[in-house]
Design a protein around this nucleic acid. Structure first.
Lengths: 228, 228
DNA sequence: CGCAAGATTGAGGTCGTTCAAATAAAGTGG
DNA sequence: CCACTTTATTTGAACGACCTCAATCTTGCG
């Protein structure tokens, strides 16, 4: 499913958006206020920390990471955004973090009102943005608990369960991100991520067929138990 | 005590909202749209994870912590709220975290609209809430970087600088919270917090007069450098 | 004063990191 | 399509930052 999305996504997309599969997406209303669609390739920057906040974005296909950097290069990924997710919502004049495509990715851009934080385009979209912002806040709070208080296994277990729930096929995950991305998301090193995954594989809780870019949850209950 | 809350808060809120500058607190203007004021004592619960989201709160005096718990008791404090800060903003029907008073604390409660997340009381208050939510999100993102990627010294340095900036006297901090709270906020143990503080004291970067409940920043530049 | 709770300090252990090497996957150009 | 390079991932061994456990000291309070 992700591979299929990615493949079509590299094609030039034009004309009005005709998307459907997105949760609570209503074409007849969106059509009026739809922004530009743009495609990005792997690791391409969508916006950087410090850029003017001109747009609000929504993932159409592919996936996006938003992250912050320390001056010595240490990185923390705040969140991964899958199709249907908004990102780039900011109150200030400048973006507080960087957004990059994980692979071939297409996004819709909505132009922000100049003095307002919410995009031009009507009440319904504003409401969607506010809801997205709240969801982001909730996720951030849950993620703080993970970063501050969970062990490596617990982090990985939580991560897999979360991804499984967000992707279409709940028992099978297509990882759109590298081990480095996972590590920078969970506050670990790539080595620990790798070791923990193989440990879970040896315990029969997960399976990693095909280039270890996809993961099958063989024992969700065990994972939930590990998540503490 | 929750019944008491509900009773006092059902006072009608009226009058047009006139607030503009969000960060500054202006009592004479607040008075128009004020909700119920309530006082809490040390460690008293303002609301708990799972409670119905009936109100949005603002700190008047004292300080509040919002936190999440793991089933085995591990705790992560998401944020400390000082006078003027909003908290308890949620999208769902239930609070996703617990809020408790750090010491003697008074808060204003604004009643939430029933179907809407935003409080009744006018456009301007809604706008304030949205702004507060965005600030919370920004802080959360910065805090994720701290929790996931910073060392103990860096965490403490960042914490002290942040508090100093938020409190009135920027060179002198009155800690409203215990070492345990600090530890649970920074993802450390109390022992590490204590050790790191004495280490900074020995280096002459900070001073801790009077029962170690107040901290003087003697070398802000050094602290900023440590924050990385 | 005497007790309870909070904070500091010390000693030792552990989980995750760091450094290093091997293996696997993905490009690249012929 | 195949050697060759480059990049990502896995695995191993040793180290270290922070934690755990435990004792001491301090502070607040009946």
């Amino acid at each position: 499913m992700h591979t299929a999305l990615a493949a079509t996504a590299s094609l030039p997309i034009q004309g009005p958006a005709l998307l459907t599969g997105v949760p609570s997406f209503r074409p007849e209303r969106e059509a009026v206020i739809v922004g530009a669609i743009r495609a990005f390739t792997k690791d391409e920057e969508i916006f950087a920390e410090g850029d003017r906040t001109v747009f609000v974005y929504k993932v159409v296909s592919g996936a996006v990471r938003t992250c912050k950097l320390l001056n010595d290069g240490r990185r923390q990924i705040a969140s991964f955004h899958l199709p249907g997710d908004f990102f780039g919502i900011e109150t200030g004049e400048e973006h507080r973090f960087t957004a990059e495509a994980l692979g071939n990715t297409t996004v819709i851009k909505y132009r922000r009102g100049s003095l307002d934080t919410l995009p031009t385009g009507g009440e319904a979209l504003s409401r969607q943005i506010i809801a997205a912002m709240m969801r982001a806040l909730e996720r951030a709070q849950a993620h703080m608990l993970l970063l501050g208080r969970k062990s490596a296994v617990e982090k990985i277990a939580a991560f897999l369960l979360d991804l499984a729930e967000r992707e279409t096929d709940h028992g099978h995950i297509d990882l759109p991100m590298s081990r480095t991305d996972i590590a920078d998301y969970l506050g670990l090193t790539i080595e620990t991520v790798s070791r923990t995954l193989t440990q879970l594989e040896r315990q029969g809780i997960i399976a990693m067929p095909a280039q270890r870019r996809s993961i099958v949850l063989r024992n969700t209950a065990a994972l939930q138990h590990l998540d503490s």
